[in-house]
Design a protein around this nucleic acid. Structure first.
Lengths: 161, 161
DNA sequence: CAAGATTGATAGATCAATCTTA
DNA sequence: TAAGATTGATCTATCAATCTTG
């Protein structure tokens, strides 16, 4: 059980970090400039637009996005001010609330999606072979499996005694 | 030139986004709990600790980390308050400044590194075959190559006329 | 004026505390 | 008391404006 990453691991790890931060930056800028949406806005709008009756309970959204409740609540408040979404009362459980896509929210996501998809394809998928595509699916699955069950608590390394 | 991502692309893309956000969250929590450092702190301290005389110019750090000047400047101010780094005057160019690792900063990074490396290995590399490792290197290189030259400006899709 | 760097304003993320209803 | 959700405080990120020296 070596104490450090190997040279190869280190190189790949730094590349992965760089890839994700630059890709994130580029896609956010593209979205922002072309449509005024952030990736976070986009993700919320995608979930709602795919939901039956374009509405979801707050906790459903939170599960789907894997966001903390409070982050989501603050974000929905801001999106509400911009009229991308609205809240509706929930009759069955009066503690809860529905989040509903507005017409203007639907127009925003429909306007933003084509160029966003194009950008993702351009920067990521157009450069990959079919084999690399399969590999990427396997790699992300592997890491996600290893992250299972560590959702809220921090992982601690096994003691080396 | 399809307008949307294919089903497979969509599935892999969502997995990649999930992987990076959860991995980021987990590694940040582990670092924070075990050492009081964030990943951002960690990256700054790594750069300084690898630099000759544990010091760098602000613009060198900014290049190495690929951070905007203002983000770095704010972050250094906060790290300065915590005495992880300090500033020193630059004689050669009096507009500039050196950032120097303090003793307490060196202790912090040395204390944090083993468990952090262990976590990265545990969640990522221990689950990959040698072939997948090579694939991951190729994939990240491909995406980074495609991002080259788009650093500050937003990319816009070619017009479809 | 341009390069190196900081500052202030604003938007977003995280944590703990709170409020209401089941 | 616990579940669904919001609020306020604090920390971080981003953008535009500024300050100083080359």
């Amino acid at each position: 059980m070596p104490k450090w990453l190997s040279d190869e691991e280190q190189r790949v790890w730094r590349q992965l970090l760089q890839m994700t931060s630059r890709l994130d930056g580029q896609l956010n800028r593209q979205l922002q400039d072309s449509s005024g949406l952030s990736m976070a806005d986009y993700d919320v709008l995608v979930q709602l637009s795919e939901a039956p009756d374009v509405r979801m309970r707050v906790f459903e959204l939170s599960d789907a996005l894997q966001w903390e409740q409070s982050r989501l609540s603050h974000h929905l408040a801001r999106m509400g001010k911009r009229e991308l979404i609205k809240r509706e009362y929930c009759a069955e459980d009066r503690r809860g609330a529905f989040v509903v896509l507005t017409d203007s929210g639907r127009r925003a996501i429909e306007g933003a999606a084509p160029a966003h998809a194009e950008a993702v394809r351009h920067f990521v998928f157009d450069g990959l072979t079919a084999t690399q595509m399969k590999s990427l699916a396997a790699i992300t699955s592997s890491v996600l499996r290893r992250l299972q069950g560590t959702e809220q608590q921090a992982w601690t390394p096994p003691t080396g005694s």
